[in-house]
């Protein structure tokens, strides 16, 4: 596969390591009332979509960017690649 890195252009997927669903960016609030349950769902449950899947890749053998890649798990077609830090900021994860 080829991942079109937003800063570096197309790169072979072997330069990256894969983490999983981009929902792993949505770490719950530790002081919420049902924090343990929220963390359990955050850490363990997955939509596991057959189709469009937003997922995290890390440019380990490159510039160390974490990327949010939108990829179809049925065809492997990639429709967008963004810097995870941009996504995180956009989603309001300030600190």
């Amino acid at each position: 596969m080829i991942i079109n890195h937003p800063l570096l252009g197309p790169r072979d997927a072997t330069e990256f390591s894969y983490l999983g669903d981009a929902s792993l960016m949505h770490r719950p609030e530790w002081q919420s009332d049902d924090a343990e349950n929220q963390f359990y769902e955050y850490q363990y449950l997955r939509d596991n979509k057959a189709g469009i899947h937003r997922e995290l890749w890390y440019h380990e053998q490159g510039d160390r960017s974490w990327l949010v890649v939108t990829r179809n798990t049925l065809t492997h077609e990639i429709s967008s690649v963004e810097l995870a830090s941009d996504v995180a900021r956009r989603e309001g994860r300030s600190r």
Binding site: L19, R27, R64, W66, L83, A84, S85, A88, S94, R95
Partner: peptide, 17 residues
């Protein structure tokens, strides 16, 4: 390697600011 990856994850994905 894995700790460094993890720290970058924490920084870029969880606490970007």
């Amino acid at each position: 390697v894995s700790v460094f990856r993890h720290l970058e994850f924490c920084h870029q994905c969880l606490w970007p600011n």
